[in-house]
Nucleic acid binder design. Structure first.
Lengths: 263, 263
DNA sequence: TATAGATGTTCAAATAACGCACATTTGTTG
DNA sequence: CAACAAATGTGCGTTATTTGAACATCTATA
């Protein structure tokens, strides 16, 4: 039996409060507006004006923020940090070509996502060139777990206790008239996803958009999923669904061997 | 005359040293290996073991790093930060579809890049599905300025003094046998790019790969470029080059109107 | 298993961060 | 347009956090 990695191996004293605050300022640009003034950042983070000022000046000096009049906004330097993750996990070199290949075969965009802070985060996304529709989601986009196909599949990969904990604490948001707000029904859908190994969700996050998702690897060990989305109209035809599922599963299998998940 | 934004409006006292160090630890994962132990991070950053420990514990606690045995690595949470930039600058919603459209027309991948810390950073990239080759570059990838088409075009957008400063201080690396290591010749190429409004570079960064680039907007005001790359063999045919250039220019024009650069 | 070298952790000294109070800018009203 | 009020920006003493040497622990090797 290996040591449980979730054991507490550090105390509160070992956490650098200043770094935490600085990171929260950076994160404020993700949650809030793209351009923010010092007071806006202050109210977003809840920190004192003077504190915000020093942190923002630091981030500016480091080249992570630019100043335009009184507003600050992120610079492309944050992409470089992200690029480190993508390169380290061979997303560009290994994953992207595979997504592209099956994306072309299917004629739809395929996305890869993983769990991060109670949301599904896109790690990679194929761009099917012929597609008329584009939902504007990119690498780093966060999708709600309970109401998207990738989200439900990611939850299905978690332990039953983790799912229960999430479902209990999560506030369900009615994105569309079709959004399922019944906790028990969602829990059941996650269970089905787990046993079936795939999941389909219709119009619960964006009206008229449906998604299908399968895990990369076996349920229980997998931590990453791929998914495809398209107009609900075309995603209800059993023949199309069957074909999409088949291709997604082959794509997932290829990713599983080509991209050793352990990194 | 507006106030010069480069004026010093803060003192050294206003910079939070702890935040700077924490960011440098994060950046260490971009420059160094994907998985690093505490001592490795220490030697990469030059900080004391105890300091590194505190910072790494903080980043772990914030969910930006994961621990695997004794090694730490980035989590997808860094992508969320990047997602903030991409969303804020409407890269996914506005830029990506345009790149995809012209990418399909051209049959080649189009990338968008900007200047960041002495390198060209990819902001977006179309994925042409039929392409056999894939160079493994993604959003956030950094390319050398002097030896790539997008890099030389980006330099051409800078002021003459800035270019001179860069060319003087930059160490030229011989990536391939064809890499141009003559500072004067490179400077001249940048000048040509500036007057012509486009630039082509053959095999100077990756052997057998050539690139072409044009600015988004007018020289002097533009700060972003798009580029296309492909096998040197096919990128020497005048007819192909003419066609690529034409499509790139139309693509750049559309981006210029659809995506107001000022954000 | 003994030993040396490397890595991890603690805690008092040193230092950097906090946030009050003051200065300045911005917006509003007579 | 001036005078006021409200909001935002900044210097500085106090206080809490960070630092790194000293100590503890782990790991590799013979």
């Amino acid at each position: 039996m290996t040591v449980n990695e979730t054991d507490i191996w550090y105390t509160e004293r070992d956490i650098s409060t200043t770094l935490v605050k600085g990171l929260k300022v950076l994160a404020a640009f993700e949650g809030g507006a793209a351009h923010m003034t010092l007071p806006e950042i202050g109210s977003e983070t809840g920190y004192d004006r003077a504190t915000v000022r020093r942190l923002v000046i630091t981030l500016f000096d480091e080249g992570l923020l630019v100043k335009k009049g009184k507003s600050f906004s992120l610079t492309p330097k944050v992409l470089v940090l992200a690029g480190g993750y993508l390169r380290g996990h061979r997303i560009g070199a290994t994953v992207q070509p595979i997504l592209n290949k099956y994306s072309e075969e299917m004629g739809r965009e395929i996305s890869m996502a993983t769990l991060c802070d109670g949301a599904a985060v896109y790690l990679a996304r194929s761009n099917i060139t012929g597609s008329a529709i584009s939902f504007g989601f990119t690498v780093g986009s966060r999708l709600p777990l309970p109401h998207t196909a990738v989200g439900r599949m990611l939850l299905a990969l978690e332990s039953e206790t983790a799912v229960q904990a999430f479902v209990k604490t999560s506030d369900l948001i009615g994105y569309t008239p079709q959004t399922n707000l019944d906790v028990l029904a969602i829990h059941e859908e996650i269970g089905k996803a787990s046993t079936q190994g795939h999941v389909i969700v219709h119009s619960e996050f964006e009206a008229g958009v449906s998604g299908m998702s399968v895990p990369i690897g076996r349920i229980g060990t997998a931590k990453t999923v791929i998914g495809v989305s398209g107009p609900t109209a075309t995603m209800q035809d059993p023949e199309i669904l069957k074909r999409c599922l088949s291709i997604l599963q082959i794509c997932a299998a290829e990713l599983c061997t080509a991209w050793h998940e352990g990194n």
